[in-house]
Amino acid sequence: MVGVSAEAMDVVFKALADPTRRLLLDRLREQNGQTLSQVCEPLGMARQSATQHLDVLVRANLVTVVRRGRERLHYLNPGPIHEIEQRWIAEFDKPRLRALAAIKTQAEESAMTVPDYVYVTYIRASAEQVWQALTDADLTARYWGHANISDWQPGSAWEHRRVDGSGAVDVVGKVLESEPPTRLVITFEDSPGESRDPSVVTFAVEPHEQIVRLTVTHEKLPNEEMRDGISSGWPAVLANLKSLLETGDVLPQAPWEMSQAHA
């Protein structure tokens, strides 16, 4: 697991070892973005106990807290679990496990709603540098393979345009909120011709001394197929962004190609 220290993995495994904390993660998996009261109520758990367990999960980066007004919403962060899966599962038995998961999903008739997707990464950069990386067409072309084009004003359109010379646009949307350099909210339409409401992506940039915590929240997903796609797509894109800002260059191979090779 490149870039993840043994100490960080120890924290993750210790957090997962407790059945109460696993139950809290299950609650967030079923319904992401819950307040402390919402998490506690169906479990019959005291707020103080839940807070202590959630603090452990936050320190392990398994849960992230997003502030919306006066509320603190708790989201399951799949990053560490994704890293565990890549190291101990993906290389060995992924096809068989995927087939078993498909059978299980069909047998259980999975939930009607698709949970939100939240991913958190920490970058050694300023908030202004991260904002520029998210909104500058030339920079997005370097780490994403597409140029994100807009004036990034609320109400303006934006395009996710290929840089292979074709000029093809794979994603379009509208800027809903723009508060440089800390918050950007956009709609995300990867199938513009389809008659469905677009999903919504929020970038929250939180500076702390010499680092930034970047939280990407993808909401209103239409189906599990799209959630599966972004679950491998966002970690790859954000890893490339992090590499560019911290080293001055992107990763030597496009990280999303690795996911395709091991599919």
Rank of each mutant, 00 (worst) to 15 (best):
E108G: 10
E108S: 14
E108R: 13
E109G: 12
A111Q: 12
A111P: 07
A111H: 10
T113D: 10
V114G: 09
V114M: 11
V114C: 11
P115M: 07
P115D: 06
D116F: 13
D116V: 12
Y117T: 09
Y119A: 08
Y119V: 10
T121V: 15
Y122A: 10
Y122L: 09
Y122S: 11
R124I: 11
R124P: 03
A125E: 09
S126D: 11
S126I: 10
S126W: 11
S126C: 08
E128Y: 03
V130R: 02
W131I: 02
W131Q: 04
Q132Y: 09
Q132G: 12
A133W: 00
L134Q: 00
L134M: 05
D136T: 12
D136E: 14
D136Y: 08
A137C: 05
D138H: 14
D138M: 10
L139K: 11
T140Y: 06
R142K: 15
W144F: 14
G145S: 11
G145I: 13
H146W: 14
H146R: 14
N148H: 14
I149F: 03
S150E: 06
S150L: 10
D151L: 03
W152L: 14
W152C: 11
P154I: 10
P154R: 09
P154L: 11
G155H: 11
G155C: 10
G155P: 08
A157Y: 09
W158N: 06
W158C: 00
H160M: 11
R161K: 15
R161V: 01
R161F: 00
R161Y: 02
V163A: 08
D164K: 09
G165W: 03
S166G: 08
S166W: 15
G167Q: 05
A168Q: 14
A168V: 08
V169S: 01
D170W: 00
D170Q: 02
D170E: 06
V175G: 00
V175I: 04
L176K: 02
S178M: 01
S178V: 01
E179A: 08
E179Q: 14
E179S: 12
P181L: 00
P181C: 03
R183K: 13
L184G: 03
V185H: 00
V185Q: 02
V185G: 01
V185S: 01
I186F: 07
T187G: 04
T187H: 07
F188G: 06
P192Y: 12
G193K: 13
G193V: 04
E194F: 04
R196P: 05
R196V: 09
D197P: 01
D197F: 12
P198R: 02
S199W: 08
S199Y: 09
V200Y: 03
T202I: 02
F203K: 03
A204S: 15
E206M: 08
E209R: 15
E209M: 04
Q210E: 15
I211L: 12
V212S: 01
R213W: 00
R213C: 02
T215M: 01
T215N: 00
T217I: 08
T217L: 15
K220D: 08
P222V: 02
N223M: 02
N223P: 02
M226H: 13
M226W: 08
R227C: 07
D228L: 13
